[in-house]
Amino acid sequence: MQKTILTHDRDVKRSASTQIDGRISAAIVASGIGCLVIGLLTTGAVISEGLKNILNWWNPAGPLSGKTSVGVIVWLVIWAIFHFLWKDQEAEVKKTMTITLILIALGFVLTFPPVFEAFE
């Protein structure tokens, strides 16, 4: 019945701690890096014809197959590395989220057509 740490008789207190487990921070920051990599490759493939060809992993889908696959692979590898490095540490929620939101925002900007078309 009781699969979580929370129990019937434990009164859970809400806290506003600024510290979180390093593994939580690792998962969140790595997701931001995955988004950034997809953005970088999207703009990079516009700038460099060579990169565009390298990312063409499967012809029917074109370079999109490589851009997204590399993004996913980098995200998972970075997540595993950060998880290992930060597993015994604590991190600040604010710092984790600030870095992650910047990474995601850059990812959004670099996939935004008016931005990458400026490099054509």
Partner: peptide, 15 residues
């Protein structure tokens, strides 16, 4: 994996 952390920490839940 961290639902107990999330319920206890308002900032983490918001994140």
């Amino acid at each position: 994996h961290y639902s107990d952390h999330i319920v206890e920490n308002l900032k983490l839940r918001n994140a």
